[in-house]
Amino acid sequence: MTIRVTVWNENVHEQENKIVASVYPEGIHGAIAEALNTDPAITATTATLQEPDHGLTEEKLAQTDVLFWWGHCAHGEVSDAVVDRVCNAVWAGMGMVFLHSAHFSKPFKRLMGSPCNLTWREAGERERLWLTSRNHPIAAGLPDHFELENEEMYGEPFGVPEPLETVFLSWFSGGEAFRSGLTYKRGAGNLFYFRPGHETYPTYHNENVQRVLLNAAKWAYNPAPRLTDPNVAPNVPVEQALEQIEERGPKLHHDGEEGFR
């Protein structure tokens, strides 16, 4: 089955900064989608902030198995209604991959329930990413570590909840370390945060970074049917419970007012 990916991007830097436009002539979203589409198991399309509903209508999200999100300078311009829509889709089972400065996006902060703050420095420093979970599916096909010659530094403390697993740990030439690949489960949805991706550097053209993105799309994909309404807590009638008990076999039965045994 083909994994349907939507790559969302603010698409602001590409229009306002000549350096970014030269590094990503088709936009950051275009570069990521192109890399994902090299795998026959994935079909990637794009959406941007400037489109109606930011390109994320109910219909589009219903047709999205995994949503990638890149944001930086326009977090506040994202509609709260779209944030609600995205979070509901995640809780219902849509996978999501947050990239670089998306740690401060509205959807990420909503899903984490925490400030998601960190320290940073823009100095074009070398970043070395170490695998901290060799057998994790997102690490498949990667060396024990790889380097990015120039990146923006992110440093601890990182104000997020404890992850299910830390897949990558970054070291920067300034001496800082940062948990750069974190996995979470929110409702029925799988989430992955991946740190690298400053807009003025060709990070998303890097072969190892592209391998991480491909692996992340496959890991975040949930083949189970989407929950119809993840915000509902249904009341199960007593009659239905009795039917389920009878179906489980004769050893379980109801003793009237004395309860079940």
Rank of each mutant, 00 (worst) to 15 (best):
H145W: 01
H145Y: 10
H145G: 01
F146I: 10
F146G: 03
L148R: 00
E149D: 15
E149C: 08
N150Q: 14
E151K: 11
E152A: 10
E152L: 12
Y154G: 01
G155T: 05
G155R: 05
F158C: 05
G159L: 15
V160G: 04
P161A: 12
P161W: 14
P161T: 12
P161I: 06
E162K: 13
P163T: 07
E165M: 12
E165L: 10
F168L: 11
L169T: 10
L169M: 15
W171I: 05
F172N: 05
S173D: 10
S173C: 13
G174K: 11
G175Q: 08
G175M: 03
G175K: 09
R179C: 08
R179I: 09
S180A: 15
S180V: 11
S180Y: 11
G181Q: 11
G181E: 04
L182A: 04
L182D: 01
L182M: 14
Y184P: 00
Y184G: 01
K185S: 11
G187Y: 08
A188Q: 12
G189D: 00
N190I: 10
N190P: 03
N190F: 01
L191G: 01
L191T: 03
F192S: 00
F192G: 01
F194Q: 06
F194S: 02
F194A: 02
R195H: 14
R195K: 15
P196Y: 11
G197D: 03
G197E: 04
G197A: 08
G197F: 00
G197P: 03
H198Q: 03
T200Y: 07
T200P: 07
T200F: 01
P202H: 06
P202R: 07
T203K: 00
Y204P: 02
Y204D: 01
H205I: 06
N206Q: 13
N206Y: 07
N206C: 11
E207Y: 03
N208M: 15
N208L: 08
V212M: 05
L214F: 07
N215C: 08
A216C: 08
K218H: 10
W219T: 02
W219N: 00
N222P: 04
R226K: 12
R226I: 08
D229G: 07
D229C: 06
D229A: 03
N231S: 12
N231P: 01
N235T: 12
N235E: 15
N235P: 05
V236L: 15
